[in-house]
Amino acid sequence: MGWIYLILAGLLEVGWTLGLKHSNGFTELVPSIITAVLIFLSFLLFARVIQTIEIGTAYAIFTGLGTVGTVIAGIAAGESADWKKLLFLTVLVVGIIGLKLVSNDKPQEDKGKELA
């Protein structure tokens, strides 16, 4: 379930990143509220993810998915898509896949146990 949460958190990161642009520095009410909700949900999911996935791997994938998604959204909105940008985007995706392949998932600890 951690990997599903991680993908959802990354997608929500794309949403709140785009929301930041549309909120105009948090001066537009509705986009600002939507952005704040997406930020909260994204980090809530990420907090759950790091209970079962190594934090370094989880954070790199979380931010990588957000970066890839935001760049793709920017390209879809008319930003440049030259071969260099696409090359480095591909390198980032390969890195994300590589981190997933070498990750060691850890079991979720019982919520009733206290930290020693």
Results as ranks from 00 to 15, higher is better:
V49G: 10
A36S: 12
V93K: 06
N104E: 15
L86I: 13
I33C: 05
D82F: 01
L38D: 02
G95L: 04
F46R: 03
I97F: 06
T70P: 00
S42V: 13
R48E: 11
T52E: 12
T52M: 07
G66N: 11
F40V: 15
G56T: 05
E28T: 04
G74K: 03
G98N: 03
A47V: 09
A77V: 13
L87A: 09
G112N: 14
L38Y: 01
F46I: 04
A60C: 02
K111F: 15
S80F: 04
V49Q: 08
V91E: 08
D110R: 12
K85H: 10
T27Y: 04
L45F: 14
F40M: 12
D105G: 00
V37M: 06
L99S: 02
A73T: 11
S80V: 09
I53R: 01
V71G: 06
V93F: 10
K84N: 15
G95H: 05
A47P: 08
P31T: 00
T67I: 13
E54A: 14
G56L: 06
Q51T: 10
T52G: 07
T27P: 02
T27E: 07
A73N: 10
E79N: 15
G56N: 05
I33G: 03
V71N: 04
G69P: 09
E28D: 09
I72L: 13
I75G: 06
G78W: 02
E79T: 15
E109R: 13
T90V: 06
T67C: 08
F46V: 04
G66S: 14
G69C: 10
G56I: 07
E79M: 12
V93D: 07
T90M: 04
K100Y: 10
S42A: 15
A36F: 03
L41N: 01
A58H: 01
G64W: 04
V102A: 12
E114H: 14
G64D: 10
A73Q: 09
A36V: 05
K84E: 14
L101M: 13
L38F: 11
K106L: 07
V94T: 01
K111C: 15
S42G: 13
T52S: 12
L92K: 00
Y59W: 05
W83I: 15
T35I: 00
V37N: 04
G112P: 08
L65C: 05
K113E: 11
G64V: 11
